[in-house]
């Protein structure tokens, strides 16, 4: 359902998404089924997403995603999940991880807000 919003701009950035999210991981066969971030690399969305991240996520994940609790560190999504980072992100945001303190955001944050937050996170991924 998340790919619905911003479909109009998907064509140009779909390739970039694959490159930015997981450049160093082998692509599995089902990569075509993976959701695609419509805003990847879009600078205004990165900026807006950072601000939205600070408003909705920073209380647990740190302003600008900076903090020290490793399991909550969203700068390590790519290292942790590789090609699956985008799917893990959407699943966790949508369904929550209630027993770990992550609320369910489905129905609270609009799709484009979630995508913009992810767009910001794509720009702060650690290398090691």
């Amino acid at each position: 359902m998340f790919v619905k919003s911003g479909m109009h701009c998907i064509s140009r950035v779909a390739i970039a998404a694959a490159l930015v999210v997981a450049p160093s991981f082998a692509t599995s066969d089902d990569s075509a089924a993976r959701p695609v971030n419509p805003y990847t690399g879009d600078k205004p969305s990165v900026q807006e997403g950072g601000s939205l991240f600070n408003q909705y996520c920073s209380h647990c994940h740190g302003p600008w995603a900076e903090q020290g609790e490793r399991p909550r560190d969203l700068r390590r999504l790519r290292i942790r999940y590789g090609d699956d980072a985008i799917t893990m992100f959407l699943t966790t945001v949508n369904e929550g991880r209630l027993d770990k303190g992550m609320p369910v955001w489905k129905g609270v944050l609009p799709d484009d807000v979630v995508w913009k937050i992810y767009t910001f996170l794509e720009t702060v991924q650690d290398d090691e």
């Binding site: 900076e66 020290g68 609790e69």
Partner: peptide, 17 residues
């Protein structure tokens, strides 16, 4: 503690360390 360091940015990292 674990809560406050999570929203304290770089200071939070220092707290965790």
């Amino acid at each position: 503690l674990k809560g406050p360091p999570s929203f304290f940015g770089k200071i939070g990292q220092k707290m965790m360390e």
